[in-house]
Structures are given as C-alpha cells and as structure tokens.
Simulated assay, not measured.
Amino acid sequence: MDQLAALATFVRAVDHGSLSAAARSVPSSLTSVSRQISALERHFGTRLLVRTTRQLALTEDGRMLYERAKSILGELKEIEERLAGNRREPSGRLRVSAPALMGRLLIAPLLGDFLRAYPSLSVDLLLVDRNVDLIEEDVHLALRVGRMPDSQLVMRKLAEVQMIHCASPDYLARRGEPHTPADLAQHDCLVFSDAPGAATWRFGREANSGARIRISGRLWVNSLDALAVAAENGAGIVRVPSWQVEKQLVEGRLRRLLREHEPAPAPLNALYQPSRLGSTKIRAFIDFLVERWRRSDPLCR
C-alpha cells in the first residue's frame, strides 16, 4: 500500500463527503478508493469511517487521522512550494481568514490589485468574528487582533489597531459628555458581543494596569457596522476601531470621547502553521498587506 496515496484518498473522501465523490475528483474508480480506505483501516487496526447510504461519518480515530493526515499532506505541499519557490512565482489557492469588518473594509478593496500582481494565485477570503482552526478548516493564514496566548503557530505582527469611544453630538447634547471611564455608568453604552449581556472595557495605556469597567448596555449587537450606525443615530456610546469611523469623525457625525483614557493599541497579527514557513504565497500576501497599510496607515490613528 502506498500510504501517502491512501491518506490523500482518505482526506478527499472526508472532504467530499462520499467515496464516489472522492473518486470523481481524481478521477479514479470507486473500487480503488474503497480499497485504499479499507487498506488504511487494516494497517492502523481500527475503523476510520462509518459508511451510510447518504454520507460518511468519522470515528474518533478517523477524526484524529484526518486532522493529522491533512496536516502532513499540507506540509508536503509546502515543501514542494518552498523547493520550487526560487524557480516560479507564487501560485495556487490561498485561504485567508480575517475579522468580518476588517476583511470587508480593509482587505477586500485591495484584493483586485493583489490578484493582478500575482496572476497565478487564487484567494479564498473567510470573514468570521471567531478564531478559526487552521488545520480543521484548511486555512493557510489567519489575521487576528489582540495579544495571542502561547501558541505553536508562527506569528507576524502586521500593524496595530486603536479602539476608541465615540457618540453622536445629539446624544452628547442630551446626556452630557463622560470625562472619566467611571462616568460611563451614567450613560447608554453599545455592546459588541455574540450574545446579550455585560461586557468589560479596558482603559489605560498599560496592558496589565488601568481601569476595567464593566459595561451593561441597553443595546448589544453582534455587528460593529450596526453598532456604529446606532451610535450615529443617538443610541449611545460605542467602542470601535478608529479606522471604522474615521469618516464619521471627520464629518462630525460622531465625536471621539475619553481620548486620554484610551487603551494601548492592540496588535494585528498574521498566524500560520510552522509547516508553511516557506510558503511563497503566504509571504507574498503578508508583504502586500504590510506595504499597502504602511503607505496609507489606515489602522491605528
């Protein structure tokens, strides 16, 4: 048995949801695919898949092998790309995840220029406000804001993000302007969260000091876009990245508050697996973002 070929067939079967779909993707025969899966199960002495009439289900051992096999095959692909890196330009498909609002406003507008610069590359941009599993979701590069816990992932700092507080002139005329973080207890605060409830806003330039104020807002939304619109229309005080509301601040639709109490900028990091360290397509994308953002400085103001 060719173990690498069998592992690749196993991963394709799981990704496509059936043995027949995996066979069509190569193309190969259904008999050949089934034989390779069975050989893997005999080799490892355990059942990997539960076959039903409609779909495949992974056993616990199958799930572990799928994740490791996908990583191993990815590492081999990256080795091929690294060895060929000096001979050809970046090519293939690059899967990137980023926070939804950042991806929509700061990354998507640049993709046209990026794709023109690298005609052999294709990009999948996954916009989600959660931490994706790079192996499980087959993501090559993840952009995340904030200080990262200890991790085996490779991390490169791209820029910094400044969170600010603002409200509409109409709201401030009605309720007055807060001068200290403690004053927020007397105000309507707008909370960004995946679920209703209180939030904690940190103030002060030092990461491990400063005030932490518990915010129990009258309005919570799981979209920063929607919160900014609500703040423009007098709903209360919002906490957002400075780049998101730059235009509203310039035009006077929002006013920046508590500037002397703002937290230190949070790092924006690019994360990827160590096995992809030599990937020319990842390096090309990161370098492109850094160069463009350094030129326009849209993130931290």
Rank of each mutant, 00 (worst) to 15 (best):
L4S: 00
L4A: 03
L7G: 01
F10A: 00
H16Q: 14
G17N: 10
S18F: 02
A21D: 13
S29N: 00
T31W: 10
S34P: 01
S34L: 07
R35W: 12
I37F: 09
S38G: 06
S38Y: 15
A39E: 15
L40E: 08
R42E: 15
H43Q: 13
R47M: 14
L49A: 01
T52C: 09
R54L: 10
R54W: 11
A57F: 08
L58V: 03
G62V: 14
M64T: 15
Y66E: 07
R68A: 10
L73I: 13
E75H: 13
I79V: 15
E81I: 02
R82Q: 11
N86L: 14
R87K: 11
E89V: 09
P90C: 01
R93C: 04
L94I: 03
R95E: 03
R95Y: 02
V96F: 03
A98G: 02
A100V: 10
A100Y: 09
L101C: 00
L101S: 01
L105M: 08
L105D: 01
I107P: 01
A108H: 06
P109L: 07
L111M: 11
F114N: 03
L115H: 00
R116A: 08
A117D: 05
Y118V: 00
L121Y: 00
V123F: 07
L125P: 06
L127V: 02
D129I: 09
E137V: 12
D138R: 06
D138M: 09
H140P: 00
H140A: 12
H140N: 10
L141N: 03
A142M: 03
R144D: 04
V145R: 08
S151W: 07
S151L: 09
V154P: 01
V154R: 13
L158P: 00
V161L: 12
Q162Y: 04
M163E: 11
M163Y: 15
S168M: 08
Y171C: 10
L172T: 05
R175N: 14
E177A: 09
P178V: 04
H179Q: 15
T180W: 10
A182M: 11
L184P: 04
L184Y: 10
L184W: 05
Q186E: 12
D188S: 13
D188C: 00
D188G: 02
D188V: 04
V191F: 05
F192C: 10
S193Q: 10
A199Q: 07
G204I: 12
R205V: 06
A207G: 00
S209N: 11
R218E: 13
S223E: 12
L224K: 11
A226V: 13
L227Y: 06
A228W: 07
V229E: 14
V229H: 10
A235Y: 10
G236T: 05
I237G: 06
I237H: 04
R239S: 15
V240E: 09
W243M: 01
V245E: 04
V245Y: 06
V250E: 15
V250Q: 15
E251R: 14
E251W: 13
R255A: 05
L257V: 10
R259G: 05
H261Y: 14
E262F: 02
P263T: 14
A270Q: 04
S275V: 14
G278V: 06
G278L: 05
I282S: 03
R283W: 06
R283A: 12
F285L: 07
D287C: 01
L289M: 10
E291I: 06
E291N: 11
E291M: 09
R292L: 04
R295G: 00
D297G: 01
P298G: 03
C300P: 02
